[in-house]
């Protein structure tokens, strides 16, 4: 079966982000960018399904600026077969991205679509569920285990308080949680090979999708800093402070 994996270019998770002085957003100039970690897990899961002989082709898609081709090449080096970039330099809402991905799903007709559960920049955790709704597909969110069996897929989900397993009719949407797998590193030969794999460019206009949004970010601020308190010398002093000063025990 064909698997579609959607990925996003985000600020590398090791970068300490800074808010711009004019409060218009987060500083992105000269900041290291990377494949969103949850998306990397999505690519890895697709590659493992191909290695098991379940998947026949992996198409990786990103919606974002022209520079997102770097992240698509990373996904190709990890084992995806071909890539699609829906190019837009605007900051798009999750619903707009879901509409664009729906148009790609219509063209590609995958049996399984795998996405990260959220991007670590906007932290929305929406796109996969929205895409599932727009396509009328079942959804297995926050997956820690994915088992394809015939015309359905069993997804074990990380929920508050434990794990839940659901059986989904294919085609279906899966969003990844951290413990689904540990992504591999791309080998140098695979990075070289990835440069020759096909990468198609599309635009929202070519897909006939409007990306207009009803959401407006008025400002972005640094969170209130928490100041360091005091060091206590002993457990006895700690207990005394908690009882009499903080009054929390």
């Amino acid at each position: 079966m064909k698997i579609l994996v959607a990925v996003k270019r985000v600020v590398d998770y090791n970068v300490k982000v800074r808010v711009k002085a004019d409060q218009s957003g987060v500083e992105l100039a000269n900041v290291k960018m990377a494949l969103n970690p949850f998306c990397e897990i999505a690519v890895e899961e697709a590659v493992r399904l191909k290695e098991k002989g379940i998947a026949s082709e992996i198409v990786v898609v990103s919606v974002g600026p022209a520079t997102a081709q770097e992240q698509l090449r990373t996904a190709l080096a990890l084992g995806a077969d071909r890539a699609i970039l829906v190019e837009s330099s605007d900051e798009l809402s999750s619903l707009a991205v879901a509409r664009l991905l729906k148009a790609v799903v219509d063209r590609e007709q995958p049996q399984l679509v795998i996405l990260g559960k959220q991007a670590i920049d906007s932290d929305n955790n929406q796109t996969g569920q929205m895409l599932a709704a727009l396509c009328g597909f079942a959804q297995g969110t926050f997956a820690s285990k994915v088992e394809v069996a015939g015309d359905s897929v069993n997804v074990t989900r990380e929920i508050d308080g434990g794990l839940q397993t659901v059986a989904l009719k294919l085609p279906a949407i899966v969003t990844t949680d951290l413990r689904l797998n540990e992504p591999r590193y791309a080998s140098l030969p695979n990075i070289m090979k990835a440069k020759k794999k096909p990468l198609d460019l599309l635009t929202p206009a070519a897909l006939g999708v409007s990306t207009a949004s009803t959401l407006k970010t008025l400002k972005v601020e640094a969170p209130a800093a928490r100041s360091a308190g005091i060091k206590v010398k002993s457990v006895a002093e700690l207990v005394e402070k908690l009882k009499n000063e903080a009054k929390v025990i």
Partner: peptide, 8 residues
């Protein structure tokens, strides 16, 4: 690490 004020 940042707090966004969003209007809908």
């Amino acid at each position: 690490n940042a707090i966004a004020t969003v209007q809908s």
